[in-house]
C-alpha cells in the first residue's frame, strides 16, 4: 500500500473541506472493507484518506412515524441486528446478513456498501472501470465476461452494480442524502447510481467532495416485500443475480409493484416492464413467470453470460413468489 496522509475530521463540514474537487487524490474511509482492498492492489492510490468514523452526526438508526433514518456509518451488523429493522423492514435485515461474513458486517458501513466499487475482475486487476486495449477495443466485450452485465450494457460500462442491499432499499423507496460544499441534497436511491461513460466518472452521482450522510426509508408501505439472491455457493459469495420486489396489494390483486434487479447491469436495474406485467394481476406462479419474462425481455447477453438471463428471470420469479408467501424468512 502506498503512503497517504490520514485525517479524522469530527464534523461533516470539516470532512467536505478535506476532500478534493476531483477524483483520485482523496478517498473517504469509513469501515475500509472495500477501500483498503483497492489500495492494497493499487487500484486507487489516494494521497489523503479522510476518516469519517469520528463524525457523530453520521451515526445511528432511528424510527419515527416519518419512517426510518439510517446514518451513513450504520454498519451492516447494525442493520442485521436492529430490532426495529428486523420487525418493520425484515427484507433489509435479511439482505444485510447475506451481504458479507460476520467480520465484514461488523466493519462495513451502509454508505460504504452503497459506494463500493464494482467486482469486475478487469477493474480489480488494474485495467480500469471501462477497460480497453491499446487499439481501443473493449476488453470485456471480447474477453471473459461471464459475470458481467446483461442489461444496460450498450455503452462501454459492462460491470455489474455490486451492492446486494441496494435493490431491496430501492424496493422500499429509500432516499439518499448527500452533503457537499454547495450544501445538502436528497435523491431517490435509484437516481444515485449512474452508468459512467468515461474513465473519469464513477458509478454513482456522488461528487468527489460530497459525503453520504444518511439513508431514509418512508414508513413501511402496506406492501409485500422480498429479496432473493442466486449465488454459486450458499454462503459468503458474490451473487450471480439478485431481485427485490415490493408489491402493493388491492384485495388479492397487485395494485402496483416495484421490481429491482441487482448484478445484471452497471446500475441497480428497475424493470417497469415487469412492474406493468404484474399490475392488476393476482399473485400466482403464472403471473410471477410472466413478470419475470418481462424483466429480462430486453436482456442482451455478452459472449459468455447468456446463462445469467435465466438466473435473473428465476430471481425475479422467486422474489415475487417469496413476497406473495409473506416475504423475508
Amino acid at each position: 500500500m502506498r503512503p497517504f496522509e490520514y485525517v479524522s475530521p469530527t464534523t461533516k463540514a470539516q470532512a467536505v473541506s478535506l476532500l478534493g474537487a476531483s477524483w483520485g487524490g482523496t478517498e473517504i474511509l469509513a469501515g475500509g472493507t472495500d477501500l483498503l482492498a483497492l489500495m492494497k492492489d493499487d487500484i486507487v492510490s489516494p494521497k489523503r484518506l479522510v476518516n469519517i468514523k469520528n463524525i457523530r452526526d453520521l451515526r445511528g438508526i432511528s424510527s419515527s412515524p416519518q419512517g426510518l433514518r439510517m446514518g451513513a456509518l450504520t454498519t451492516l451488523a447494525d442493520l442485521a441486528d436492529d430490532a426495529g429493522i428486523k420487525k418493520n423492514y425484515p427484507a433489509l435485515a435479511e439482505a444485510a446478513i447475506e451481504a458479507a461474513s460476520p467480520q465484514i458486517r461488523n466493519m462495513a458501513t451502509l454508505a460504504g456498501n452503497l459506494c463500493q466499487r464494482p467486482r469486475c475482475w478487469y477493474f480489480r486487476n488494474g485495467f480500469g472501470l471501462l477497460p480497453k486495449d491499446e487499439t481501443g477495443n473493449e476488453l470485456v466485450a471480447d474477453g471473459d465476461n461471464r459475470y458481467h452485465a446483461i442489461l444496460g450494457n450498450e455503452g462501454p460500462a459492462k460491470f455489474v452494480s455490486p451492492s446486494t442491499i441496494v435493490p431491496v432499499l430501492i424496493a422500499y423507496e429509500a432516499k439518499i442524502r448527500l452533503e457537499g460544499p454547495k450544501g445538502k441534497r436528497e435523491l431517490p436511491l435509484e437516481k444515485f447510481f449512474v452508468i459512467p461513460k468515461s474513465e473519469n466518472e464513477r458509478e454513482h452521482d456522488l461528487g468527489p467532495n460530497e459525503i453520504v450522510t444518511e439513508v431514509v426509508v418512508p414508513p413501511v408501505p402496506n406492501a409485500k416485500i422480498a429479496h432473493y439472491e442466486i449465488r454459486q455457493k450458499d454462503v459468503f459469495d458474490w451473487p450471480l443475480a439478485v431481485a427485490a420486489v415490493a408489491l402493493k396489494m388491492q384485495g388479492s390483486n397487485v395494485e402496483s409493484a416495484r421490481i429491482v434487479m441487482g448484478y445484471v447491469a452497471p446500475v441497480p436495474w428497475m424493470s417497469p416492464e415487469a412492474e406493468q406485467a404484474l399490475t392488476a394481476q393476482p399473485l400466482d406462479q403464472e403471473t410471477a413467470q410472466k413478470a419475470a419474462e418481462a424483466a429480462v425481455k430486453d436482456a442482451k447477453p455478452l459472449s459468455h453470460n447468456e446463462y445469467k438471463v435465466q438466473l435473473a428471470r428465476v430471481a425475479v420469479k422467486r422474489a415475487i413468489l417469496k413476497a406473495a408467501s409473506g416475504g423475508a424468512a
Binding site: 490520514y6 474511509l29 475500509g32 472493507t33 483498503l36 482492498a37 451488523a77 460476520p102 467480520q103 465484514i104 461488523n106 466493519m107
Partner: peptide, 9 residues
C-alpha cells in the same frame, strides 16, 4: 466484535 485485522488500519 470480530473483525479481519488484515483489512483494518
Amino acid at each position: 466484535r470480530a473483525v479481519k485485522s488484515c483489512t483494518v488500519l
